[in-house]
Simulated scan of single mutants.
Amino acid sequence: MSARPDKLGDLVVVVVGASSGFGRGSAIKLAAEGSSVVIAARRKHMLDEIVSEIESGGGSALAVEADVTDPAQVSEIAKSAINQFGRIDVWINNVGVGAIGYFWDIPIEDHSRLIDVNLKGLIYGTHVALDQFIIQGYGTLINTGSIDSEVPLALQNTYAATKAGVLSLSRTLNEELRLAKMEDIKVGTIMPWAVDTPWWTHAANYTGHEPRMAMMDDPEIVVDAIVRSCLRPKEERPVGWKAKASDMSHHLIPDLTERLSANIAKKESDRGDPRSFHTGAIHEPMLDGMGMDGGIRARMKREDAND
């Protein structure tokens, strides 16, 4: 049994969902601090670019192509990490796709896709990580949730449900680890406010308007929170003053907080530029005038599982 490293420069970190967004930023920042990073996603060419960037700066990184919805491929991430570095100190589950709109306007296959990626994919990563941590006797699991994990947000229905599941799983695991006297294994959840990342353009959009949210945060504060959690994980870590205020408000006045949040979400949606809609059988929305392909569901399937 190895001792838990207490410096970022000594860590071996797996980042699942590292091709863009928080995952990419976290991998680069951890490597700059001296961590050995294993980055995983579906888009291997983007992972290879990140590895080249890290290695050119003197860091150490390994890219593993994997789809989080396939448990066998998730297991291969861990095997590759062990073969290369001998252990895993931190596993970061940074997976997520979205669909925006009234629940009944979103096709059932999109609801299913969100569950496959956001919840089942995260569960597969969690299971693999804990298997390794139990062998080692220590480890830190970081799950990327959302303020939606605590405050259910209108027009993000199934997305919010999956993120609530992420937080519930993390809470439950910490209690089970306590009962099993495995308290050197920690599980933390990162809970950002709406952040200015590609999520908004990758999400399936059934609102009829450009997807948006009020006062979006800079992704850098989320990356910093993930990096801090590698050494000092918290079961719940709301990121930024808006997420912290929303989290506190929901604990004190849950019904009012949910109603106000819903009103804000609807107002922001209505302010977005109108979108035209595909009139085919699956009613795929279109991205007019943005230089992007029309079918957002096709975009989800190409780019979603590990962004």
Rank of each mutant, 00 (worst) to 15 (best):
V64F: 03
D105V: 03
V68T: 15
P71Y: 02
W104M: 12
W104L: 13
K79R: 14
N118E: 07
N83M: 08
P107Y: 14
I100R: 13
I115E: 09
L119S: 06
G101I: 09
V95R: 08
R113T: 07
F133Q: 02
R113I: 01
L130H: 05
A129C: 06
L114N: 13
Q73T: 01
A99W: 10
V95I: 14
L130Q: 08
A99F: 11
A99M: 07
D67T: 05
W104N: 11
I135T: 12
T69H: 01
D110A: 15
Y138C: 03
P107G: 13
V90I: 13
E76I: 00
T140N: 14
N83E: 15
L114H: 08
I82N: 07
I77Y: 00
G101E: 04
I115K: 02
I108Q: 11
A66D: 03
I88R: 08
G98Y: 09
I115P: 05
I123C: 13
I134L: 14
I134S: 05
E65Y: 00
I106T: 09
G101L: 05
T126R: 01
D116C: 06
F103V: 13
Y138L: 00
D67C: 02
I134N: 07
D70W: 05
G121Y: 04
A99P: 12
G139K: 03
I88N: 03
I115C: 07
I135D: 11
L122S: 13
P71W: 01
I82L: 15
E65A: 15
V90R: 11
G98F: 09
S75A: 15
D70Y: 05
T140Y: 02
N118Y: 06
H111W: 13
S112P: 00
G101R: 07
Y124W: 12
A72S: 15
D105T: 09
S75N: 14
N118Q: 06
G137V: 10
I108F: 10
V90C: 09
V117N: 03
F85G: 06
D110S: 11
V95W: 03
H111Q: 09
P107S: 12
A63Y: 06
D116N: 14
D116P: 12
T126A: 14
A78P: 00
S112N: 12
V64I: 15
A66G: 03
H111R: 11
V74W: 06
Y124R: 02
N83G: 14
L130P: 08
I82V: 15
A78S: 12
F85I: 09
F85H: 11
N94A: 10
L119I: 09
I135H: 08
F85C: 07
A72T: 14
I88P: 02
G96S: 13
A129G: 05
I100N: 08
V64Y: 01
K120M: 11
N83C: 04
L122E: 09
D105W: 11
D89Y: 10
G139I: 04
G86C: 07
L114D: 08
D67M: 06
D131W: 06
K120P: 00
E109T: 12
V74Q: 02
H111I: 09
L130D: 08
